[in-house]
Amino acid sequence: MAKIFQVSARAGLARVIEPVARALLRRGVTPNAVTVTGTVGVLVGALGFGARGELVAGAIIVTIFALTDLLDGTMARMSGGSTKFGAFLDSSMDRVADGAVFGAVAYWLATENDRWGVAGALVCLVAGGVVSYVKARAEGLGMTANVGIAERTERLIIVGVGGILQGAGVPHALTVALWLLAAVSVFTVGQRMTHVYRQAQRIEPGVSR
């Protein structure tokens, strides 16, 4: 059910993003420029607003600019496929943006003396990095790891919703969102490692040693 919802949501976003991607390409904007712009926007939302406790504004800005992660990929596909440097830049900028988001959240929660929230933010930061690393390492070994219920866009949406609810006055909404995200991120790591393990078994019998 979660996978069906995820596919439907992405299909809905694609109908909005594709016309924007075409328009930007016609104006000579490159996917790499969109990647960098998106990262700068996330940094502004996270560090300029979220870290100061302006959670609603920060979450909205981060969510808007996080969607460029889908936009630059669509643009790359429409223009003939992503280059190796484009893929490298996209992955690198994603890690910078994720670090800023969860670092800002952890900083603000620390000023509020919310130890559980800080712990949740740190778990999300580490688990999110492992989710991405497992995929990258698998691809480096000639396998795939394109599975999981909490990919990057979903992770940012979850923390964004928590931030908006907290900013709107719902007590501990951000902390609850962080621990929910921590759980699904750890589960996603397990999903990806299991997926890679099964591929490795087919390629190298006896891999379980």
Rank of each mutant, 00 (worst) to 15 (best):
S8Q: 13
A200R: 10
A87D: 06
V170G: 11
F49L: 15
Q201H: 10
K3D: 12
I164K: 01
E204C: 12
V196G: 07
L109F: 12
N146T: 09
E204R: 15
G58M: 11
G41F: 07
G45H: 08
A104M: 02
A66P: 11
V96I: 13
A110G: 14
D90N: 04
F102C: 04
G53K: 05
G140W: 00
M93N: 04
V7W: 10
T111Y: 10
G128L: 13
M143V: 10
G169Y: 08
L47V: 11
T175G: 00
G48W: 01
A177F: 07
G120F: 04
T39E: 09
V123E: 03
G53W: 08
R155H: 03
F88C: 05
V7E: 13
G120T: 02
R27F: 13
V186K: 02
L70P: 05
G169F: 09
G12Q: 00
A87E: 11
A182R: 00
M193R: 10
P171K: 07
A11R: 15
A2E: 12
T194W: 11
I17W: 02
L47K: 03
Q166C: 04
F65A: 03
T68S: 11
L24D: 04
F49Y: 14
K84I: 14
G81C: 04
G41Q: 08
Y197P: 11
T83N: 00
V118H: 06
V170E: 11
C124K: 05
M75D: 04
V96A: 06
E18T: 15
A136C: 00
V131D: 02
Q6E: 13
A76M: 02
W116R: 13
S91F: 00
L165Q: 01
F187C: 14
G169P: 04
G142H: 02
R155W: 07
V123W: 05
W108V: 14
F49A: 11
G41N: 06
L125H: 07
V184R: 00
G28R: 04
A59L: 03
K84F: 09
L24Y: 00
V56D: 03
F88G: 00
G206Y: 01
I17T: 07
L43M: 08
V40P: 09
G206V: 04
Q201Y: 13
A106F: 07
G86M: 05
R77A: 05
Y133I: 13
L125V: 03
G81T: 09
A33Y: 06
A136V: 05
A9F: 14
A66V: 11
R10H: 14
L24V: 05
G163D: 01
R155D: 07
A106P: 05
I64D: 07
G53I: 07
R202F: 10
G142K: 00
G128R: 06
